[in-house]
Deep mutational scan, measured.
Amino acid sequence: EPLWIRPDAPSRCTWQLGRPASESPHHHTAPAKSPKILPDILKKIGDTPMVRINKIGKKFGLKCELLAKCEFFNAGGSVKDRISLRMIEDAERDGTLKPGDTIIEPTSGNTGIGLALAAAVRGYRCIIVMPEKMSSEKVDVLRALGAEIVRTPTNARFDSPESHVGVAWRLKNEIPNSHILDQYRNASNPLAHYDTTADEILQQCDGKLDMLVASVGTGGTITGIARKLKEKCPGCRIIGVDPEGSILAEPEELNQTEQTTYEVEGIGYDFIPTVLDRTVVDKWFKSNDEEAFTFARMLIAQEGLLCGGSAGSTVAVAVKAAQELQEGQRCVVILPDSVRNYMTKFLSDRWMLQKGFLKEEDLTEKKPWWWHLRVQELGLSAPLTVLPTITCGHTIEILREKGFDQAPVVDEAGVILGMVTLGNMLSSLLAGKVQPSDQVGKVIYKQFKQIRLTDTLGRLSHILEMDHFALVVHEQIQYHSTGKSSQRQMVFGVVTAIDLLNFVAAQERDQK
C-alpha cells in the first residue's frame, strides 16, 4: 500500500453525458421521505430548503428570480454533511469501515464536522487534520463531537509532509485500522450531490432553472449537481466560483495573481482535486475576500440567511453572472454553511477592521482624538531585521541585547519573508524542534498583521487588541530589464502597544 495517494490523481470516472444510468458502476440512493420521529440526527441530513432572495437581486438590477439552496440546514450545519454520511455509508457497505475503526480526514473543517457527527452516532474514533487558518468555532464544535484535532501550517503546499493532507496520511500509516475516506478522491463525494442535492433542486424548481452558481473546494458539490442538471435540464448554465489565490478556475489566465492566501474558508485549493470535473462548468468567476464577507453580511442583514463567507462569494458572483438572465428565468445559488463557524471572524466588526474589510468610518461609535491620525505620526525608528541564514542562537542574543521581542526576517534585497519572535524561538528550542545552530528560517511564521503608514491609529489599535505587534510595510514598484514591473513589500518598522501608548501619553502631556 502506498504511503500516500495524491489528492489530485487523474480521475478514473467514466461518467458521460447521455450515458444510461443503468451502466453506472456505483451504488445510487434515492431521496427517502422522513418519518415524523427521526431514529437519529443523521436522518436530518439532506432535504434542505430552497429560499427566495428578495432584496439583493433587485438591489443589483437582476431581472431573474434568485433562489438560495440553504445547505446550513443540514444536521452539522453545512453541505459537507451529505458527503460525510455518504462516504461512511459506502465504506461500511463495501466492508472497508468496521466497528471500532478510526476515521482520519484532512479538511478545512466542515467535512470534519460532518464526519465527527456521523462518527459520534456510529461509534468510530475520528481524527481531523486541518490548517491553522480555520476558525476556532470549527475546532470547538469538533472537540465537542469527540474528534481529535491536529493543526497544520496554512501556507504548507498540499504535497508537503507538513500539509493537512501529508499529516493525515502519516497518521494513517501509524494508526492500525485507520482510514482516510479522502473527500478529494472519493466518488461518494460527487455521488452524494448527484443522487440527492441535484434531485432536490430539480424537484423544488419543478425542473425549471436557467443558471446554477456554486463555490468550489473539493469540487464534489458542483460536479455532482452539474452532471445531473446537464442530464435533466441541459439549458442550465453552470457557474463556478473560485477565490483569488486558488488555481481551480479555467482558463488558467484567471488564476494569475501574486496573491497566495485568502481568508474565506472551505473553497479554493492549490491543486485540482480528483473529484472535480471542470468540463461540466460553463464559466468560472474569481471572487475576493472583501466581496465575500460584504455579501455574507448582506445576506444575514437583508435576507435573514445566517450563512458563512463562501455563501457571500457565491452570491457576489451570482449578481454578476445572472445579469444575462431575463424576467421569468431563474438562478439558484448554493449557500454551503452557517455563520456559526465564523462568529469571531467576519461577523465581528473588530475582525473586519483588522483585516481591512471594514473602515473605521463605517462604525458610528465615538472615537478618541488620536483615532484618525496616521501611523506615520508615530515617528517610528528604523527596524531591526535579520536574514533567514542567521542562526536561532545568534538571533536570540541580538533580540535580548537590543531589547526586542520580535524581528522581521528579510532577504538580501529587503523583501519581507516573515517574522521571528523570542517566545516562538525559545519554545521551539525547548520542544526540540530546532537547535541553536539551525537557521532562523526554520522558525519563520507568517501569521502576523501588516499595516501601512497611511493607515489610521484606530486601525492599529484594533490590531493591537488581539496581537502583540504589527509590521509596518510599504510597497515598492521595481522595474526589470524586460520592461515588466513587480510590486514588493518592504519593512518600514515594527509597532507595539507600548509605542502607541507612549505616543498618546506624550501628545497629551505636551497639550497640557
Rank of each mutant, 00 (worst) to 15 (best):
I238F: 09
I239R: 04
G240R: 02
G240Y: 00
V241D: 06
V241L: 04
D242I: 00
D242W: 00
P243K: 01
E244W: 09
E244H: 10
S246M: 02
I247R: 08
L248W: 00
A249K: 02
E250Q: 11
P251Q: 01
P251T: 08
E252A: 15
E252H: 03
E252V: 12
E252W: 09
E252C: 06
L254A: 09
L254H: 08
N255R: 02
N255Y: 05
N255I: 00
Q256R: 15
Q256D: 08
T257Q: 04
Q259W: 06
Q259I: 13
Q259L: 13
T260C: 08
T261L: 06
Y262V: 05
E263N: 06
E263R: 03
E263A: 12
E263Q: 11
V264L: 06
V264R: 00
V264N: 00
V264M: 08
G266D: 01
G266Q: 01
I267V: 08
G268V: 00
Y269S: 05
Y269E: 06
Y269A: 05
Y269V: 01
D270A: 02
F271N: 00
F271G: 00
F271Y: 04
I272W: 04
T274S: 07
T274I: 05
V275S: 01
V275M: 08
V275H: 00
L276W: 00
R278D: 02
R278L: 03
T279P: 14
T279M: 13
V280K: 10
V281H: 03
D282C: 14
D282E: 12
K283C: 15
K283M: 10
W284M: 00
F285W: 03
K286F: 00
S287F: 08
S287N: 07
S287T: 11
N288Y: 14
E290D: 13
E290Q: 13
A292Y: 04
T294L: 06
F295R: 06
F295A: 03
R297T: 02
R297W: 02
M298Q: 10
L299P: 03
L299H: 03
L299F: 04
I300H: 05
I300W: 00
A301Q: 07
A301V: 14
A301E: 12
Q302P: 04
G304V: 01
G304Q: 00
G304P: 00
L306R: 01
C307M: 06
G308D: 01
S310F: 00
S310H: 01
A311G: 04
A311Y: 04
G312D: 01
S313Q: 06
T314D: 06
V315M: 09
V315E: 07
V317Q: 08
V319D: 01
K320C: 09
K320T: 15
A321T: 11
A322L: 04
A322P: 02
Q323G: 10
E324H: 13
E324K: 15
E324G: 11
L325T: 05
Q326A: 11
Q326E: 13
E327D: 11
E327Q: 11
E327L: 09
G328R: 15
G328A: 05
Q329V: 05
Q329R: 11
Q329H: 08
Q329Y: 09
R330E: 10
C331K: 01
C331D: 00
C331E: 01
V332H: 02
V332G: 00
V333Y: 07
V333N: 00
I334K: 02
I334Q: 00
I334S: 03
I334H: 03
L335E: 01
L335S: 05
P336L: 03
D337S: 02
D337L: 01
D337E: 03
S338C: 07
V339Y: 06
V339Q: 05
R340C: 01
R340G: 07
Y342G: 01
M343V: 08
M343A: 04
T344F: 02
F346W: 02
F346G: 02
L347N: 01
S348W: 05
D349M: 04
W351N: 00
W351V: 00
M352Q: 01
L353C: 10
L353T: 15
Q354I: 04
Q354P: 05
K355G: 06
K355S: 07
K355A: 06
F357Q: 05
L358C: 07
L358T: 04
K359C: 13
K359P: 06
K359S: 12
E360V: 13
E360Q: 14
E361C: 12
E361Q: 12
E361D: 12
E365G: 14
W369K: 08
W369Y: 05
W370H: 03
W371H: 09
H372Q: 13
L373T: 06
R374D: 05
V375R: 07
V375F: 09
E377Y: 03
G379A: 14
G379C: 12
L380M: 14
L380G: 11
S381M: 13
A382P: 13
A382T: 13
P383C: 08
P383M: 08
L384Q: 08
V386C: 15
L387A: 11
T389C: 08
T389M: 15
I390D: 10
I390M: 12
T391R: 06
T391W: 03
C392R: 03
C392T: 15
C392D: 10
G393N: 05
H394K: 12
T395H: 09
T395E: 04
E397Q: 14
I398D: 09
I398G: 15
I398T: 13
L399M: 12
E401D: 15
K402E: 13
G403K: 10
G403C: 14
G403A: 08
D405N: 06
D405C: 08
Q406T: 13
A407N: 03
A407M: 05
P408A: 10
V410F: 12
D411N: 13
D411W: 12
D411I: 12
E412K: 14
A413C: 14
A413Q: 15
A413K: 14
V415K: 05
I416T: 12
G418R: 05
M419T: 15
M419E: 05
M419P: 14
V420T: 14
V420A: 13
T421S: 11
T421I: 14
L422K: 09
G423R: 10
G423D: 06
N424Y: 04
L426Q: 07
L426F: 14
L426K: 07
S427A: 11
S427Q: 06
S428A: 12
S428G: 13
L429Y: 07
L430Y: 13
L430K: 11
L430V: 13
G432A: 13
G432W: 06
G432K: 13
K433R: 13
K433P: 03
V434T: 12
V434G: 10
V434R: 10
Q435F: 13
Q435T: 12
Q435I: 15
P436M: 10
P436S: 12
S437I: 13
S437G: 14
D438R: 13
V440G: 10
V440Y: 05
V440N: 12
G441L: 14
K442H: 13
K442G: 06
V443Q: 13
V443F: 15
V443G: 15
V443S: 13
I444M: 13
I444S: 15
I444F: 02
I444W: 15
Y445A: 08
K446H: 13
K446V: 14
K446C: 15
F448D: 03
F448I: 15
K449L: 13
Q450G: 05
Q450T: 10
Q450A: 07
I451E: 04
L453C: 12
L453G: 05
L453H: 03
L453P: 15
T456H: 14
L457D: 00
L457Y: 14
L457Q: 02
G458D: 12
G458Q: 08
L460V: 15
L460C: 05
S461R: 07
H462R: 06
H462I: 13
H462L: 14
I463F: 15
L464W: 09
L464V: 15
E465F: 03
M466F: 15
M466S: 14
D467M: 08
D467L: 07
H468N: 14
F469P: 11
F469K: 09
A470Q: 08
A470R: 09
L471Q: 10
V473A: 12
V473D: 10
H474M: 09
E475S: 04
E475F: 09
Q476Y: 12
Q476K: 11
Q476D: 10
I477V: 10
I477F: 15
Q478T: 15
Y479T: 13
S481Q: 11
T482S: 15
T482N: 15
G483Y: 13
K484L: 15
S485F: 15
S486A: 07
Q487W: 10
R488N: 11
Q489Y: 13
V491H: 09
V491P: 06
F492E: 15
F492W: 15
G493V: 13
V494I: 12
V494H: 03
V495I: 15
I498C: 07
I498Q: 03
I498K: 12
L500H: 11
N502K: 15
F503N: 06
F503H: 12
V504T: 06
V504F: 14
A506G: 15
Q507Y: 10
Q507D: 13
E508Q: 13
E508R: 10
R509Q: 14
R509S: 12
D510S: 11
D510F: 15
D510M: 12
D510A: 05
D510R: 11
Q511N: 13
Q511P: 05
K512L: 13
K512V: 13
K512E: 13
